[in-house]
Amino acid sequence: MLVRYLLAALAAGIFAGVVMTPIHYLKLVPLIEHAETYEQGGHGIEPTHDHQAGLVSSAFAHGAAHEAAGSLILAHSSAAAGEGEEDSAALFESRALGTLAANLVTGAGFALMLAATALLTGRTITARTGALWGLAGFAAISLAPALGLPPELPAMPAADLGARQAWWILTVGLTAIGLYCLVLRREAAVRAVGILLLVVPHLFAAPHPADLSSPIPPTLAAEFAVASLATGAAFWVLLGLSLGTAMDRFVGAKA
Protein backbone atom coordinates (compact mmCIF):
# COMPACT_ATOMS: atom_id res chain seq x y z
CA MET A 1 0.00 0.00 0.00
CA LEU A 2 2.63 2.48 1.07
CA VAL A 3 4.89 1.24 -1.70
CA ARG A 4 2.16 2.02 -4.21
CA TYR A 5 1.79 5.43 -2.60
CA LEU A 6 5.49 6.20 -3.00
CA LEU A 7 5.60 4.83 -6.56
CA ALA A 8 2.59 6.97 -7.50
CA ALA A 9 4.43 10.01 -6.09
CA LEU A 10 7.56 9.14 -8.09
CA ALA A 11 5.53 8.75 -11.29
CA ALA A 12 3.81 12.10 -10.78
CA GLY A 13 7.14 13.82 -10.12
CA ILE A 14 8.80 12.32 -13.17
CA PHE A 15 5.81 13.34 -15.31
CA ALA A 16 6.00 16.92 -14.04
CA GLY A 17 9.76 16.97 -14.69
CA VAL A 18 9.34 15.81 -18.27
CA VAL A 19 6.64 18.41 -18.99
CA MET A 20 8.70 21.23 -17.45
CA THR A 21 11.77 20.66 -19.63
CA PRO A 22 10.35 22.15 -22.87
CA ILE A 23 8.83 24.99 -20.83
CA HIS A 24 12.28 25.75 -19.40
CA TYR A 25 13.67 25.75 -22.91
CA LEU A 26 10.94 28.10 -24.06
CA LYS A 27 11.15 30.69 -21.28
CA LEU A 28 14.31 30.34 -19.21
CA VAL A 29 17.24 28.71 -20.97
CA PRO A 30 17.40 31.42 -23.69
CA LEU A 31 17.74 34.04 -20.93
CA ILE A 32 20.44 31.98 -19.16
CA GLU A 33 22.37 31.59 -22.40
CA HIS A 34 22.01 35.30 -23.10
CA ALA A 35 23.37 36.09 -19.63
CA GLU A 36 26.34 33.79 -20.21
CA THR A 37 27.50 36.00 -23.07
CA TYR A 38 27.91 38.78 -20.48
CA GLU A 39 29.62 36.32 -18.15
CA GLN A 40 32.37 36.02 -20.73
CA GLY A 41 32.69 39.79 -20.86
CA GLY A 42 30.86 39.97 -24.16
CA HIS A 43 28.83 42.86 -25.57
CA GLY A 44 31.64 45.28 -24.87
CA ILE A 45 31.02 45.19 -21.13
CA GLU A 46 33.81 43.95 -18.91
CA PRO A 47 32.85 42.02 -15.78
CA THR A 48 33.75 44.17 -12.79
CA HIS A 49 35.99 41.48 -11.36
CA ASP A 50 37.41 39.84 -14.40
CA HIS A 51 40.37 38.48 -12.48
CA GLN A 52 37.83 36.17 -10.85
CA ALA A 53 35.55 35.69 -13.81
CA GLY A 54 38.46 34.95 -16.08
CA LEU A 55 40.23 31.87 -17.22
CA VAL A 56 39.18 29.35 -14.63
CA SER A 57 37.04 26.29 -14.95
CA SER A 58 33.78 26.30 -13.03
CA ALA A 59 35.14 23.63 -10.70
CA PHE A 60 38.08 25.83 -9.76
CA ALA A 61 35.86 28.86 -9.49
CA HIS A 62 33.73 27.09 -6.91
CA GLY A 63 36.81 26.30 -4.88
CA ALA A 64 37.81 29.94 -4.93
CA ALA A 65 34.28 30.91 -4.02
CA HIS A 66 34.43 28.97 -0.78
CA GLU A 67 37.65 30.61 0.27
CA ALA A 68 36.41 34.12 -0.47
CA ALA A 69 33.48 33.94 1.93
CA GLY A 70 31.24 36.98 1.86
CA SER A 71 33.09 38.64 -0.97
CA LEU A 72 31.82 39.41 -4.43
CA ILE A 73 31.90 36.35 -6.61
CA LEU A 74 31.55 36.76 -10.32
CA ALA A 75 33.25 33.52 -11.10
CA HIS A 76 31.57 30.45 -12.48
CA SER A 77 32.03 30.90 -16.13
CA SER A 78 32.36 27.47 -17.57
CA ALA A 79 32.40 28.81 -21.08
CA ALA A 80 35.22 31.20 -20.24
CA ALA A 81 37.59 28.26 -19.84
CA GLY A 82 37.76 27.73 -23.57
CA GLU A 83 36.52 29.47 -26.66
CA GLY A 84 32.79 28.86 -26.31
CA GLU A 85 33.28 25.31 -25.10
CA GLU A 86 30.45 23.74 -23.18
CA ASP A 87 30.65 22.39 -19.65
CA SER A 88 33.35 19.80 -19.40
CA ALA A 89 32.32 18.29 -16.07
CA ALA A 90 28.68 17.66 -16.99
CA LEU A 91 27.40 14.10 -16.87
CA PHE A 92 25.86 14.34 -20.33
CA GLU A 93 27.24 15.60 -23.61
CA SER A 94 24.05 17.47 -24.36
CA ARG A 95 22.98 20.40 -22.24
CA ALA A 96 19.32 19.62 -22.91
CA LEU A 97 19.80 16.04 -21.69
CA GLY A 98 21.35 17.35 -18.48
CA THR A 99 18.42 19.71 -17.99
CA LEU A 100 15.97 16.86 -18.59
CA ALA A 101 17.75 14.60 -16.10
CA ALA A 102 17.94 17.34 -13.49
CA ASN A 103 14.24 18.12 -14.00
CA LEU A 104 13.35 14.45 -13.54
CA VAL A 105 15.32 14.21 -10.32
CA THR A 106 14.02 17.53 -9.00
CA GLY A 107 10.44 16.66 -9.91
CA ALA A 108 10.69 13.23 -8.27
CA GLY A 109 12.32 14.75 -5.19
CA PHE A 110 9.70 17.45 -4.68
CA ALA A 111 6.89 14.96 -5.40
CA LEU A 112 8.23 12.62 -2.73
CA MET A 113 8.54 15.47 -0.25
CA LEU A 114 5.01 16.73 -0.96
CA ALA A 115 3.60 13.19 -0.66
CA ALA A 116 5.60 12.74 2.56
CA THR A 117 4.11 15.93 3.97
CA ALA A 118 0.61 14.62 3.29
CA LEU A 119 1.53 11.28 4.86
CA LEU A 120 3.05 12.83 7.97
CA THR A 121 0.15 15.23 8.50
CA GLY A 122 -2.42 12.48 7.91
CA ARG A 123 -3.99 14.14 4.87
CA THR A 124 -4.60 12.87 1.38
CA ILE A 125 -3.80 14.60 -1.89
CA THR A 126 -6.58 14.15 -4.46
CA ALA A 127 -7.11 15.53 -7.93
CA ARG A 128 -9.45 18.08 -6.37
CA THR A 129 -7.04 19.32 -3.71
CA GLY A 130 -3.84 18.74 -5.71
CA ALA A 131 -3.55 22.26 -7.07
CA LEU A 132 -3.79 23.68 -3.54
CA TRP A 133 -1.02 21.36 -2.30
CA GLY A 134 1.02 22.46 -5.28
CA LEU A 135 0.43 26.14 -4.52
CA ALA A 136 1.54 25.57 -0.93
CA GLY A 137 4.73 24.02 -2.28
CA PHE A 138 5.18 27.00 -4.58
CA ALA A 139 4.72 29.43 -1.69
CA ALA A 140 7.25 27.63 0.50
CA ILE A 141 9.88 26.64 -2.06
CA SER A 142 9.71 29.32 -4.78
CA LEU A 143 7.99 32.44 -3.48
CA ALA A 144 9.31 32.76 0.09
CA PRO A 145 13.02 32.34 -0.69
CA ALA A 146 12.65 34.55 -3.79
CA LEU A 147 11.69 37.46 -1.51
CA GLY A 148 15.21 37.43 -0.11
CA LEU A 149 17.17 35.83 -2.93
CA PRO A 150 15.48 36.63 -6.25
CA PRO A 151 16.13 34.02 -8.96
CA GLU A 152 19.42 35.08 -10.47
CA LEU A 153 21.20 34.73 -13.77
CA PRO A 154 24.79 33.60 -14.31
CA ALA A 155 27.28 36.48 -13.89
CA MET A 156 25.10 38.34 -11.41
CA PRO A 157 26.89 39.36 -8.22
CA ALA A 158 26.12 37.10 -5.30
CA ALA A 159 27.24 36.54 -1.75
CA ASP A 160 28.93 33.38 -0.46
CA LEU A 161 27.18 30.27 -1.81
CA GLY A 162 27.07 28.42 1.50
CA ALA A 163 25.48 31.37 3.29
CA ARG A 164 22.85 31.77 0.61
CA GLN A 165 22.07 28.04 0.63
CA ALA A 166 21.71 28.10 4.41
CA TRP A 167 19.33 31.10 4.29
CA TRP A 168 17.36 29.43 1.49
CA ILE A 169 16.94 26.13 3.34
CA LEU A 170 16.05 27.88 6.61
CA THR A 171 13.45 30.07 4.87
CA VAL A 172 11.89 27.13 3.03
CA GLY A 173 11.75 25.03 6.20
CA LEU A 174 10.22 27.75 8.39
CA THR A 175 7.72 28.73 5.66
CA ALA A 176 6.63 25.11 5.21
CA ILE A 177 6.11 24.63 8.96
CA GLY A 178 4.39 28.02 9.15
CA LEU A 179 1.99 27.11 6.35
CA TYR A 180 1.20 23.82 8.09
CA CYS A 181 0.39 25.63 11.35
CA LEU A 182 -1.66 28.27 9.57
CA VAL A 183 -3.61 26.14 7.08
CA LEU A 184 -3.94 22.66 8.52
CA ARG A 185 -4.36 23.45 12.22
CA ARG A 186 -7.40 24.90 13.92
CA GLU A 187 -6.01 26.20 17.23
CA ALA A 188 -5.67 29.99 17.32
CA ALA A 189 -2.34 29.88 19.14
CA VAL A 190 -0.81 27.46 16.63
CA ARG A 191 -2.04 29.63 13.78
CA ALA A 192 -0.45 32.69 15.35
CA VAL A 193 2.84 30.79 15.59
CA GLY A 194 2.38 29.88 11.92
CA ILE A 195 2.13 33.54 10.90
CA LEU A 196 5.21 34.29 12.99
CA LEU A 197 7.16 31.52 11.25
CA LEU A 198 6.17 32.91 7.84
CA VAL A 199 7.49 36.35 8.75
CA VAL A 200 10.61 35.52 10.76
CA PRO A 201 12.99 34.55 7.89
CA HIS A 202 12.41 37.91 6.23
CA LEU A 203 13.41 39.83 9.34
CA PHE A 204 16.91 38.43 8.91
CA ALA A 205 18.40 39.82 5.74
CA ALA A 206 19.37 37.28 3.12
CA PRO A 207 23.10 37.29 2.31
CA HIS A 208 23.87 39.88 -0.36
CA PRO A 209 27.18 41.01 -1.82
CA ALA A 210 28.58 44.37 -0.81
CA ASP A 211 29.03 45.44 -4.43
CA LEU A 212 25.87 45.08 -6.50
CA SER A 213 27.31 46.23 -9.83
CA SER A 214 26.62 43.63 -12.49
CA PRO A 215 27.39 43.15 -16.17
CA ILE A 216 23.85 41.82 -16.68
CA PRO A 217 21.30 44.37 -17.99
CA PRO A 218 18.59 44.98 -15.36
CA THR A 219 15.83 44.23 -17.86
CA LEU A 220 17.28 40.79 -18.50
CA ALA A 221 17.49 40.05 -14.76
CA ALA A 222 13.92 41.27 -14.14
CA GLU A 223 12.61 39.23 -17.05
CA PHE A 224 14.34 36.15 -15.70
CA ALA A 225 13.12 36.59 -12.13
CA VAL A 226 9.50 36.87 -13.27
CA ALA A 227 9.84 34.01 -15.77
CA SER A 228 11.41 31.81 -13.10
CA LEU A 229 8.60 32.45 -10.62
CA ALA A 230 5.93 31.95 -13.29
CA THR A 231 7.37 28.65 -14.48
CA GLY A 232 7.86 27.69 -10.83
CA ALA A 233 4.15 28.25 -10.19
CA ALA A 234 3.30 26.21 -13.27
CA PHE A 235 5.58 23.39 -12.09
CA TRP A 236 4.05 23.27 -8.62
CA VAL A 237 0.43 23.35 -9.77
CA LEU A 238 1.22 20.67 -12.35
CA LEU A 239 3.02 18.59 -9.72
CA GLY A 240 0.14 18.89 -7.26
CA LEU A 241 -2.44 18.00 -9.87
CA SER A 242 -0.53 15.00 -11.18
CA LEU A 243 0.20 13.85 -7.63
CA GLY A 244 -3.50 14.06 -6.79
CA THR A 245 -4.49 12.27 -9.96
CA ALA A 246 -1.90 9.54 -9.38
CA MET A 247 -3.09 9.09 -5.80
CA ASP A 248 -6.73 8.85 -6.93
CA ARG A 249 -5.91 6.33 -9.60
CA PHE A 250 -3.31 4.08 -7.96
CA VAL A 251 -3.91 4.47 -4.25
CA GLY A 252 -7.38 5.88 -3.51
CA ALA A 253 -9.14 3.04 -5.34
CA LYS A 254 -8.11 0.69 -2.55
CA ALA A 255 -9.91 2.68 0.12
Binding site: S78, A108, P154, L161, S228
Partner: peptide, 29 residues
Protein backbone atom coordinates in the same frame (compact mmCIF):
# COMPACT_ATOMS: atom_id res chain seq x y z
CA UNK B 1 17.11 13.99 -4.73
CA UNK B 2 16.57 17.73 -4.47
CA UNK B 3 19.93 18.16 -2.75
CA UNK B 4 21.70 16.27 -5.52
CA UNK B 5 20.05 18.25 -8.30
CA UNK B 6 19.93 21.64 -6.64
CA UNK B 7 22.56 22.01 -3.95
CA UNK B 8 25.45 19.55 -4.14
CA UNK B 9 28.77 21.28 -4.75
CA UNK B 10 30.10 18.54 -7.04
CA UNK B 11 31.22 20.05 -10.33
CA UNK B 12 29.65 17.23 -12.38
CA UNK B 13 26.26 17.62 -10.71
CA UNK B 14 26.47 21.40 -10.88
CA UNK B 15 27.28 21.53 -14.57
CA UNK B 16 24.59 18.99 -15.45
CA UNK B 17 21.86 20.65 -13.42
CA UNK B 18 23.08 24.21 -14.04
CA UNK B 19 20.10 25.50 -16.01
CA UNK B 20 17.59 23.81 -13.71
CA UNK B 21 19.24 25.35 -10.63
CA UNK B 22 18.84 28.79 -12.13
CA UNK B 23 15.32 28.02 -13.36
CA UNK B 24 14.11 27.00 -9.89
CA UNK B 25 15.89 29.89 -8.23
CA UNK B 26 18.17 27.67 -6.15
CA UNK B 27 21.22 29.54 -4.91
CA UNK B 28 23.89 28.86 -7.53
CA UNK B 29 27.53 29.77 -8.22
Amino acid sequence: FVWGAGFAHSAALHDTAHDVRHAFGFPCH
